[in-house]
Amino acid sequence: MSDEISNEVLFDLHRRMVRIRRFEETAGKMMEDGKIPGALHLYVGEEAVATGVMAHLSNQDQITSTHRGHGHLIAKGGAFDRMFAELFGRATGYCKGKGGSMHISNMELGMLGANGIVGGGPPIAMGAGFSNKFRKTDNVAVCFFGDGASNEGSFHEAANMAALYKLPVLFVCENNGYGEYTPQANHQAIVDVADRAQGYGMPGVIVDGMDVIAVYEAAGEAIARARAGEGPTLLECKTYRYYDHVGVRGMGLTYRTDEEVEEWQKKDPIDQFETRLAEQGILSAEAAQAVHDEVLAEIDKAIKFAEDSPYPEPEAVLEDVYA
């Protein structure tokens, strides 16, 4: 393992999590107010996972995301203005306003796309990993997926091939306990998705996905292992989404209790981290609040940019398509 984590890294982890939280809170409110069309799957509560992993990646490393992809893109370096523009369906968005929330992507950042298909990402990440190895780079492909996606054939096939060819791929299971509205106990006979790793011939480890340092340390080891040519890893992060599967309060279904949500919120990744940083004299409460304020100001500007941006021209519908 490397030396002690520097303050610069700690500040970076904190800011990335705050950026995700504030973006998602704002986007959720705008969706419920009818200002953003379509459905948003929000990442509030799971910030430590994307942050802890992405802090080890460069733009040359690739990620594949899920339908809950905003947090991944923000942690990978996505700009608020182009993201809001995409959610608003404007021509200045990351996908020229034609992708929206569930297909947001940016090749310059190595973000190979959010995905509307559950389990759609693993084969893409496996392919990127194959390319990285074939081209003899030291780049790594990271695949984010959920406990529900780990039941899909696409995941099994990708994990098998990645292990067979010792590809530089990190499979990050964001296990939030629910496949959409279905509790994990009702869709798989195991509790730890990491247990599946042995079946493919790769290591599987579990970390507390509400602890950004725990994720950062474990992901660092797995990514270093991938860069060294030692093959893929399955990293399971136990986490929780505070909002519903879609939107904030979604469809009002009673598939989980408020008490359960409140119990997880006691382990909030940002609150926990800010408390520890303050206790150790690394970042005061006032300095942490200043980060929130800066991020909120950036969001205000980004929304203005998006609202002032044009919609794509009708003829643009035939551009950027393969068939």
Binding site: I190, V191, D192, Q198, P203, G204, V205
Partner: peptide, 21 residues
């Protein structure tokens, strides 16, 4: 303990893996 034998030492140190089965 369902959580034993599953932490990051499986990566760094190649420690034994104990699945719940």
């Amino acid at each position: 303990n369902p959580a034993s034998g599953k932490d990051v030492r499986r990566l760094v140190a190649r420690a034994s893996v104990f699945d719940n089965q």
